[in-house]
């Protein structure tokens, strides 16, 4: 699962461009800066490599690996003013 602080995203799309397995896409959720933060694709092969988290210039992404045996969550969480929304 990936967690995104919605209003910290500036829309550089580095995470989407650099994800080695093309797991991310731009969401349809407009943030208050007027950009669309990323989200995990419905079908994705995210392997929790954390590259998107490391390269994000705005500390907006956290990658949270699923526990062993837990089903993989394809949803991303958008954090808006501390409130968690699933997209």
């Amino acid at each position: 699962m990936i967690e995104i602080i919605k209003d910290w995203c500036k829309g550089c799309e580095i995470c989407v461009i650099r994800c080695p397995v093309d797991a991310l896409e731009i969401s349809a959720e407009l943030n208050k800066r007027g950009v669309y933060p990323p989200k995990l694709k419905e079908e994705n092969e995210c392997n929790f490599c954390r590259l998107c988290e490391l390269l994000c210039p705005d500390f907006a992404i956290t990658v949270i690996p699923e526990e062993e045996g837990e089903p993989k969550e394809t949803k991303s969480r958008l954090i808006i003013g501390g409130i968690v929304n699933e997209v």
Binding site: D7, W8, C12, V35, L54, L55, C56, P57, D58, F59
Partner: peptide, 18 residues
Amino acid sequence: MLPTIFCNGCGHGVAVDY
């Protein structure tokens, strides 16, 4: 103080993270 004042795509924020 966040988000930073850096422009969209500026590398400087990444240096903070590292």
